[in-house]
Simulated scan of single mutants.
Amino acid sequence: MGNVNFDLKDIPKSEDLLKFSNKNMPLKINAIQACLFLFRTTDEISKIVDSQFQKYGVSDGKFSVLMTLYNRNNHQLTPSELSNELNVTRATISGLLNGLEKDKLVERCKHPSDGRMLTIKITEKGVKLMDELCPKHFTLLSKLLGSLDCESLNSFIDNLKLIRIGIADRIFE
């Protein structure tokens, strides 16, 4: 997970935030506070997850590549398919693949039908790493939000989806 490095100890009070609101630009104060809480919480979760990944010698980016390959029936994709799946640039994928290949977690192979292309395949070592890491990782994620009941979690997911739709629909200056 990318670090936001959000370290605001106290979320600003409503009256402090109201100073920035006016009739031409009214602010939804609780939306600001919710966003600030989300930043702080995301940063805390990122630090915990990053710490776990470090124990296994991977970053969140490397984990994402490995997870994507691990979940494929044949454990392989082309670099461009990986970049599309993970919504990152080819340059980013290339850097991640170089590190993963150096660690012998993936290998570059000739494409089965197009000799000009390569496929990226997770190695046996990579599969073993994921077999060990995934249960621990998903147990950690489960514990991180374990204080919420099932109904609250479903509502939380629905709200996050609405936020993402709102973000996608807006044009920011």
Rank of each mutant, 00 (worst) to 15 (best):
M1T: 08
N3I: 10
N3E: 12
V4K: 15
V4S: 14
K9F: 06
S14E: 10
S14A: 07
E15A: 05
L18A: 13
F20V: 07
K23F: 15
P26Y: 10
L27V: 13
K28G: 08
N30F: 07
N30E: 12
A31T: 10
A31S: 09
I32R: 04
Q33I: 02
A34V: 03
C35R: 14
R40K: 15
T41K: 08
T41I: 04
T42F: 08
D43V: 00
I45R: 03
I45W: 00
Q52K: 11
F53K: 00
F53N: 07
Q54P: 00
Q54L: 09
K55F: 07
Y56F: 14
Y56T: 05
G57Y: 03
V58F: 00
S59H: 06
F63I: 05
F63M: 12
F63K: 09
F63Y: 15
S64N: 15
V65G: 01
L66S: 03
L66E: 01
T68C: 15
Y70R: 07
N71L: 14
R72F: 06
R72W: 05
N73G: 12
N74D: 11
H75K: 10
L77A: 07
T78C: 06
P79N: 08
S80T: 14
S83T: 01
V88W: 02
T89Y: 04
T92H: 12
I93C: 08
S94A: 15
G95A: 13
L96V: 05
N98K: 15
L100Y: 02
K104R: 12
E107N: 06
H111W: 04
P112H: 01
P112Y: 00
S113N: 10
M117C: 05
L118D: 12
L118M: 13
K121C: 06
I122N: 02
I122V: 07
K125H: 13
L129C: 01
E132I: 10
L133M: 08
C134Q: 03
K136L: 09
H137F: 06
H137V: 03
H137P: 00
F138K: 05
F138Y: 09
S142L: 00
S142T: 05
K143H: 09
L145D: 09
G146S: 06
S147W: 13
D149S: 13
E151Y: 04
S152F: 06
S152M: 11
L153G: 02
N154D: 11
S155I: 07
I157T: 09
N159V: 12
L160T: 06
L160R: 09
L160Q: 08
R164L: 11
G166S: 08
I171E: 12
F172P: 02
E173A: 12
